[in-house]
Nucleic acid binder design. Structure first.
Length: 197
DNA sequence: TAGCTGATTGACT
DNA sequence: GTCAATCAGCTAA
């Protein structure tokens, strides 16, 4: 099964966030949290940079995120937002080079019934994973996954199946109040699973 | 210690 | 289109 291919290597993440964000499109996020296999194709990401990026948690949440942001890439950074939702990021860059990529939307490919149960929706619903809080809930991701190694373990990212046969859209990031104008959001053009058209 | 905010979502007008 | 839910961590005092 394609899901069993080896995860992306550490080196994949040891590059600037905006490069990793674009390259993650089409890759597969695989979760075995809670003994259930759920997986999806990444169709939307956003890059967050270091302290110079006013929207990045490296700048506005230095205490909570510093150790992870300044650590080595390839680890998960999970935070809770608005007291009730979780967002999943992949830390990028070498140690001392802060940056991360927010995974904003997935196209569900495995474990749809489990996702549907967790989300309280039908398995055919397009809304299973089409938002950062939604995909975290569908894959069972909580603060327990904060700091997890994305190259091994219960939460990994595997390469895309073939070549990049899709067009990449580039635009401004969603939902933030600072550094709004930066073109750091990437998505697969034409996918019906992106969080916003 | 009190008050405020937010990389969201879902329900409602 | 508007708005409430809900809370850790920040800021002001």
């Amino acid at each position: 099964m394609p899901v069993l291919r080896p995860p992306l290597p550490r080196e994949f993440y040891l590059r600037p966030a905006r490069v990793v964000a674009r390259d993650l499109l089409g890759c597969r996020l695989i979760s075995t949290v809670g003994d259930a296999l759920t997986a999806g194709r990444i169709v939307e990401t956003e890059a967050y940079l270091g302290p110079d990026d006013a929207a990045s948690h490296a700048a506005i949440r230095p205490i909570a995120a510093r150790a992870l942001f300044y650590g080595e890439g390839g680890h998960a950074y999970v935070f809770r937002i608005y007291g009730l939702h979780h967002c999943l990021n992949a830390i990028t860059g070498r140690a001392g080079r802060p940056g991360c990529v927010l995974i904003r939307a997935l196209e569900p490919i495995r474990g749809l019934p489990v996702m549907a149960r967790r989300r309280g929706l039908r398995a055919e619903s397009v809304a299973l994973c089409n938002g950062p809080g939604k995909l975290a809930e569908a894959l069972g991701i909580t603060l327990r996954q904060n700091g997890a190694d994305l190259t091994r373990g219960s939460l990994v990212i595997a390469p895309r199946d073939g070549s990049r046969d899709f067009a990449v859209g580039v635009g401004t990031r969603v939902g933030i109040t600072r550094a709004v104008e930066q073109p750091l959001r990437f998505w697969i053009r034409g996918s019906r699973y992106v969080s916003r058209a």
